[in-house]
């Protein structure tokens, strides 16, 4: 059996500050099999984005952060890699798409120059001509109408939707095996968001890319993910296949979260507690979604 693309087991995170220690993650476990799209859904402050930063190996460098537990990428423990090895993975074997494309692209370099830099991660000696050809093909893949013109543009000359597509093209350019998407498209209009998600879904299916999809939007998660982990205050509270979890939410927090989403069929605004003891009830795992054994 091949190792899952990503395996997280009993991950703890705490920050040490002047006021003492703040616990952020209380031992979360999750896994993503090859080619699977897995969502981590929760509210702000639940620990979604820090999890992504740990997977990328970025938080381990922060001096105030204390990380413990296992994070294995394709069967290799991140903690046992050197910093240089972890750096080689980023932008190459694993890549990330951020929420706001405008602030993730450099405003003073043209898209083409930034794309060249991205391609150099995988192919250090790649020349400007070869890089440009590759970049143009990647942009055509994300349905950008005139790739050559986009390559000669600055980020601010393109629309939000186009920038998001450029980000997706860059993130997938080196054919990563794991893509981390942190709230992609939330800064975009609904119609553009729907298009980008569809595009992203087609592309990751084509390349068999595994995806960790981080979002607070349950509707988007339902449409994108195969499996869902619901996270509340640094604890996973429910885990199941998307269809099961949406048809039969079992944890009080998941139920509250689902009930709170306004419906386009119009059922009014429900009365829901934003804090409740019940939200701290133990993890509920749906049938057939147990965590795999960790191979030593």
């Amino acid at each position: 059996m091949t190792a899952p693309s990503l395996l997280i087991r009993d991950l703890h995170l705490a920050f040490r500050g002047w006021a003492g220690q703040v616990d952020v993650l209380h031992g979360i476990s999750l896994h993503i099999n090859k080619g699977e799209r897995v969502a981590l859904v929760g509210e702000s402050g639940s620990g979604k984005s820090v999890t992504a930063r740990i997977v990328l190996g970025l938080l381990q460098q922060t001096r105030s952060a204390r990380v413990s537990g296992l994070v294995a990428f394709e069967g290799r423990d991140l903690a046992r890699m050197t910093e240089a090895e972890r750096r080689r993975l980023r932008g190459n074997r694993m890549s990330m798409i951020f929420q706001d494309p405008m602030s993730s692209l450099n405003p003073v370099y043209r898209i083409g120059e930034q794309f060249h830099e991205v391609l150099e991660r995988a192919e250090p000696g790649i020349g400007p001509v070869a890089a440009r050809d590759k970049a143009a093909a990647a942009l055509a893949d994300v349905a950008i109408p005139d790739p050559e013109r986009a390559l000669d543009s600055y980020a601010f000359q393109l629309s939000g939707g186009m920038n998001q597509r450029v980000m997706i093209a860059m993130a997938l350019a080196n054919e990563p095996s794991l893509l981390i998407a942190d709230e992609p498209g939330t800064a975009l209009d609904v119609t553009v968001q729907a298009q980008t998600l569809e595009l992203m879904r087609d592309l990751v299916a084509k390349h068999h890319t595994s995806v960790l999809f981080i979002s607070h939007n349950l509707g988007v998660v339902r449409e994108f993910a195969d499996r869902v982990y619901v996270i509340y205050k640094g604890r996973i509270v429910e885990h199941g296949c998307t269809a099961d979890l949406f048809a039969d939410p079992r944890h009080p927090y998941t139920r509250a979260l689902l009930a709170a989403v306004p419906r386009i069929t119009g059922e009014g605004i429900p009365e829901i507690d934003d804090v409740s003891e019940a939200y701290f009830q133990p993890l509920v795992v749906h049938e057939g979604c147990e965590e795999p054994e960790v191979e030593a």
Partner: peptide, 17 residues
């Protein structure tokens, strides 16, 4: 088009869309 682009969570909503 705007209504159809809304990401929804229930089966009733999917039918409406």
């Amino acid at each position: 088009r705007l209504i159809c682009a809304v990401p929804v969570v229930t089966a009733d909503e999917v039918r409406l869309r």
